[in-house]
């Protein structure tokens, strides 16, 4: 075994996979611009992704906001900067933790569900059936899910932002002796539109990634139940890694503008 050959092989495989996903994604987007658009599928996906993810995303945000307040307080106390808690909590949640943790939680829940649903359709020949019924799987299955996730994630993250800040506020006024009104005024004064917008743009991109990976892995599912299981796992793993990598790139971008 030549280790260099192994590295070369996996690099090539990685690039080929990235290329295939990119092609699949652009065909999915292109399908949006050719009628018909399947509104019922879109609404079903939107409800599933947006509404039913609210509890998990909301709880994640509340606990993260609370923990962030404590940690920031611990750090701030070392240079008499405890009053920094509201602004750090707000910025941390809105710019970074809301979209990233929300994205990862939704990836776990939604990318897997999409991959399992489409993968099952693939192995039970339902995708073939769609084609024989003069229906494009890209238009019927992929495009509505891409749109639904891209629109639902910013809404979810907006809720997560509010709940995360709420979590930080709760902990700060009950455990850290902050004055409620002062805390809230600090938060509002400190946050800028750009913070919120950059977080919501991230969320939209993450939503797209989640649906893309769910659809891609489902459509390329191997045969049998094990194939679907593998597709489901791959969807969550690839979506999560892509979210974290894209998050860094987007953060760099917003950092420099």
């Amino acid at each position: 075994m030549n280790p260099l050959a192994a590295i070369g092989r996996s690099t090539l495989a990685f690039l080929a996979g990235t290329g295939r996903i990119a092609i699949f994604g652009s065909r999915g987007v292109a399908a949006l611009f050719r009628p018909p658009f399947y509104w019922r599928e879109f609404l079903r996906a939107f409800l599933f992704i947006g509404y039913y993810s609210l509890p998990v995303v909301g709880l994640t945000a509340i606990f993260t906001g609370g923990a962030l307040a404590l940690q920031t307080y611990a750090g701030g106390a070392r240079f008499n900067g405890e009053q920094i808690v509201p602004s750090i909590v707000a910025i941390g949640i809105v710019r970074e933790l809301g979209p990233v943790l929300g994205g990862l939680m939704v990836a776990g829940r939604v990318a897997s569900a999409i991959a399992a649903e489409i993968g099952t359709m693939k192995v039970t020949e339902q995708i073939d059936a769609l084609v024989t019924l003069s229906t494009s799987p890209l238009k019927y299955l992929v495009a509505p899910r891409l749109v639904a996730a891209t629109l639902a994630l910013p809404l979810l993250v907006a809720v997560a932002d509010i709940l995360g800040i709420f979590g930080g506020w709760m902990v700060s006024i009950t455990r850290l002796d902050f004055n409620s009104a002062v805390y809230l005024r600090n938060t509002v004064d400190f946050l800028e539109n750009g913070d919120v917008i950059s977080g919501l743009v991230k969320a939209a991109v993450f939503g797209f990634i989640i649906a893309l990976m769910g659809c891609y892995q489902g459509m390329h599912s191997g045969r049998g139940a094990s194939g679907v299981g593998r597709a489901t796992t791959l969807a969550v793993v690839t979506a999560s890694v892509l979210i974290l990598a894209t998050n860094y790139i987007l953060t760099e971008f917003f950092f420099s503008v």
Partner: peptide, 29 residues
């Protein structure tokens, strides 16, 4: 073309009649 698949390949999220009429409701022809 019409095709009967080995496992039926019915769409489980749709009632029977929408399966039968799938092409008439959602197909591109």
């Amino acid at each position: 073309v019409g095709m009967l698949f080995q496992g039926g390949a019915l769409f489980d999220s749709l009632p029977v009649w929408e399966n039968v009429a799938f092409r008439l409701l959602r197909g591109e022809d």
